[in-house]
Write a protein that binds this DNA or RNA. Structure first.
Lengths: 209, 209
DNA sequence: CTAACTATGTTATCGTTGCTAACATATGTT
DNA sequence: AACATATGTTAGCAACGATAACATAGTTAG
């Protein structure tokens, strides 16, 4: 991905410090983890003093929250996009959503952690949850199609949850480097497909008998 | 659990600073999270100077690793203990292991995070993995019993992994407060039981035809 | 018994961090 | 031109992790 490439400011004012700080944060977080990330580093990268960010973000946490929410939005978009590459409402489209989820986690490991972290988002957790619900909605609608439901029924909610749980667990095990604790080579895509098939309730006949 | 209760040292020497620091760390971590935990706090609790811990731990990370390894060991023991409360090698005993896992995560949220974190353990990750494999072995042996295998076959490994993934995901969703994103009340124990049943391959007839 | 050694404390200090206060400089509006 | 607002700067705070130099206790050898 784009390595922190920064245009130094020209005069006293920067131009787009807010945007550049978010971008710098994203890059630095992916490089050193959310804790290894420091405001000072971001400032150095943006060529600005240590106090400048506090005109745009109330705190370091606030900046991180911004990064997290952006991540959730992108995850939702990517899931929708990949689901659309398969016949809607099938095991395949659902497995595609799962693969997208895990791949996102592996590609943007630290952003992913941030997205689901409770700390680092003091006071804005509800805001974050709302964005998260948006992404979860992609899965819910796909499960609804699978079940032939017109809207998000109780049944849909019940069926979707274990699928989420499964890929969420797989994501964390993968990014925490635990897949070699299993003592056999885990094929992630295969694992997702199999679990999706098993966890879904039997599908009602698509049409006719 | 035991709130950080500390016996001040009597003379110049402390007596059991190492042990008391680990214990203080456990308490403080559970109270304020692994990041909210500071060496200085632990020192204050133990009634000792800021430099003293470095006679016993090479770094803060090193102390945290100790806490994590202890946690993994206790998790393994608890899983074994609860599995033994049910007929061995059944869906029930396997679900009990899963429940123990998630309950541990919820009871010792921050220690749990630490146990599976890759950061905070620089240089000792393999050591940690070994302890982790010990705990995982409890699940593996129970799955082997379920499948009627005498040792940990490929089939056992394949069957156990999705079970782990499921409860691991459930644990993180639970401790990250995401169970209300699902828009329906999640019954954790029920959820574990259902997923266990669905994820396991059909059981071979216990005995006879 | 005492000298030497080792283990385990202390104090002093350093560099880094997140953040705030007080001040400076652009930009835009009237 | 005068003022208000947005957005920078410098200086400085307290807390943190860590190290170096020193102090003291307990242990072992002669």
């Amino acid at each position: 991905m784009a390595k922190a490439k920064i245009q130094k400011k020209t005069g006293y004012h920067h131009g787009d410090l807010r945007g550049q700080l978010i971008s710098a944060a994203r890059d630095l977080i992916e490089e050193h983890g959310p804790d290894g990330f420091s405001m000072s580093d971001a400032c150095r990268l943006a060529g600005v003093s240590n106090a400048a960010p506090y005109r745009h973000f109330k705190s370091k946490e606030d900046l991180l929250t911004e990064v997290a929410m952006d991540g959730l939005a992108r995850l939702g978009a990517q899931m929708e996009q990949h689901a659309a590459e398969y016949p809607r409402g099938t095991v395949q489209s659902l497995a595609a959503i799962g693969r997208t989820y895990v791949q996102f986690a592996m590609r943007e490991q630290h952003t992913f952690r941030l997205m689901f972290s409770t700390k680092s988002h003091a006071g804005r957790i509800e805001e974050l949850k709302t964005v998260g619900r948006g992404a979860y909605g992609v899965l819910l609608r796909e499960v609804a199609r699978y079940l032939g439901e017109d809207d998000i029924t109780e049944e849909v909610l019940q069926a979707a949850f274990p699928l989420w749980t499964q890929v969420h667990g797989l994501s964390f095990l993968a990014i925490d480097g635990k897949l070699d604790v299993t003592a056999f080579p885990v094929d992630i895509d295969q694992s997702i497909l199999l679990a999706t098939e098993r966890l879904l309730p039997p599908r009602p006949e698509p049409q006719g008998s």
